[in-house]
C-alpha cells in the first residue's frame, strides 16, 4: 500500500482538479460582462493561511464551501451549516467566525486562518493542538478544529485566560461528546505550553 495515496489525499486531489477546471471555465464566463455597480466579480484572491489563493467564488458561496470544496481545506468541518454548532469556526483577522455563515466575498481583504494553517513550517503542532493531544481532549473529533480555532483566537487576544474566560470564549462551539471539560483542560495546558 502506497502510504502517499491515502483516501484523504485522493479526495483532495479530486477536489483540487475539479476546482482548477471550474476556475478556468468560469474565467471566461465571469469576465467581460456588464454588471451594475456594486456587483461582485467571481474571480477573487483570498488570503488563506498566509497564502494568497486565486479562486473562482460564486456570489452566494459561503467561506466554508470555498475552503472545503475549492481549496481542499477539509479541516474546516460543516456540522449544522446554520451557525448553531461551531464546527466550521475559522479565524478572520484573528476573530473566530462561523465559516458556514459568512460569504467568501466578504473577506477578500482579510486574513483567513484554518486549522491547517496552525502547524508550524517544521511540522510542530500549534500549542493548542499539542495541548489538546496531551489532554486527549477530542473524542470523536468532529468539533475539534472549531474548538481549536476558538481557543487560538482566545489566546491571541488574552494570553492568560482563566478557566471561566476560556469557557465563555469557547461557548460558541458545541461538543456532542461532551468533552467540554477536556477542552478547557487543553486550553489551560496550552497557556502553560506557550508559557
Amino acid at each position: 500500500m502506497n502510504p502517499k495515496l491515502t483516501r484523504r489525499r485522493f479526495i483532495k486531489g479530486v477536489i483540487a482538479s475539479g476546482a482548477a477546471a471550474t476556475t478556468t471555465a468560469a474565467w471566461y464566463s465571469a469576465t467581460g460582462q456588464e454588471r451594475p455597480s456594486g456587483f461582485v466579480e467571481r474571480l477573487v484572491r483570498i488570503n488563506v493561511n498566509g497564502q494568497v489563493r486565486n479562486v473562482d467564488v460564486e456570489p452566494q458561496e459561503t467561506l466554508a464551501s470555498t475552503l472545503r470544496y475549492k481549496l481542499g481545506l477539509t479541516g474546516t468541518k460543516l456540522g449544522c451549516n446554520r451557525g448553531e454548532c461551531g464546527a466550521c469556526t475559522v479565524l478572520v483577522n484573528d476573530v473566530p467566525t462561523y465559516a458556514c455563515s459568512v460569504l467568501t466575498h466578504s473577506f477578500k481583504n482579510d486574513r483567513i486562518e484554518t486549522v491547517e494553517g496552525l502547524e508550524s513550517a517544521n511540522g510542530d503542532l500549534h500549542p493548542v493542538q499539542q495541548a489538546f493531544v496531551e489532554e486527549l481532549a477530542p473524542q470523536c473529533g468532529y468539533c475539534t478544529p472549531g474548538q481549536i480555532m476558538s481557543a487560538v483566537g482566545l489566546l491571541r487576544e488574552n494570553a492568560n485566560p482563566t478557566r471561566d474566560e476560556a469557557r465563555h470564549a469557547l461557548a460558541g462551539n458545541i461538543c456532542r461528546c461532551g468533552s467540554y471539560d477536556s477542552y478547557l483542560d487543553g486550553v489551560m495546558r496550552a497557556v502553560e505550553l506557550i508559557g
Binding site: 478557566r163 471561566d164 469557557r167 465563555h168 469557547l170 461557548a171 462551539n173 458545541i174 456532542r176 461532551g178 467540554y180 471539560d181 478547557l184
Partner: peptide, 12 residues
C-alpha cells in the same frame, strides 16, 4: 438543545 459550555458546570 444540546448543552453548551455555559450550561455545564465549570468542572465535572
Amino acid at each position: 438543545k444540546v448543552p453548551t459550555y455555559l450550561d455545564c458546570p465549570l468542572k465535572i
